[in-house]
Amino acid sequence: MKAYLSIVRMRFIALLQYRTAAVAGVFTQFFFGFVMVMVIRQFFFSGDAQGAMSLAQAVTYIWLGQAMLGMMPWNGDNEVIAMIRDGNVAYELCRPLNIYTHWYCRLLALRTAPTLLRSLPIFLIAGLLPAGYNLQPPPSPAAFAAWLAAVAGALLLGCALSNIISISTLWTVAGEGMLRMLPALVIFFSGSLVPLPLFPQWAQAIVNFLPFAGLVDIPNQFFVGTLAPAVLPLMLLRQLAWTAVFVLIGAGLLRLATKRVVIQGG
């Protein structure tokens, strides 16, 4: 925990020094958000959403996705991956500490710091946009609380997934594959490309069952009000269950890799 806090602090300081990067990031996310909002608006004007969600909800959903983009697990921990690629990971693997937890904590910090830094300006500005383009506040304090809880769940889940990406690069080819394939799946099935409620009726059960919904869609739906705060325990359970699955897979892979390194003599 202490290690986690100190990594968060370090990351935060590092990020603050890169103020140009932060401004550039916010600008980019804004630009994307605008284009996406304009597209979704025209779709809403051209046809009927058949009750899936209102335009205002969809727009808010999109802005949330942009604001919380820093949490998306579309890559691993670049420093860990670099360490794996240049072979220095062998030392790390032989150290008497729990590497999985260590890497996981690093990821938690990596995802928290930029999100805190970048989400605030986006919330603020997107909230002040003219009606029809703006991010709207959650319908109730309970919805807001549920959103916060689900964001925490999304963070835990996302880091478990990211850790698998990092760890899989221990196997060169498979790792490259994961690095390339996973982002596509994450973007599509998490709801950050198109809000999941707008997916076809028949696909709802599938996309909601998949782990990726827990990354973006579940928190967002609490915020916009398409999910009632009452179902929070169920949704958290879903996020945590998938987190557990990914942690088990990641830790298992890491154990396998460690064994391999030890057998080869480092």
């Binding site: 935060f12 300081i13 603050l16 020094q17 103020r19």
Partner: peptide, 13 residues
């Protein structure tokens, strides 16, 4: 010129 610490990092923004 950069100084250490969270506070001066914040100021540096």
């Amino acid at each position: 010129r950069r100084k250490a610490g969270l506070f001066s990092a914040l100021r540096g923004v």
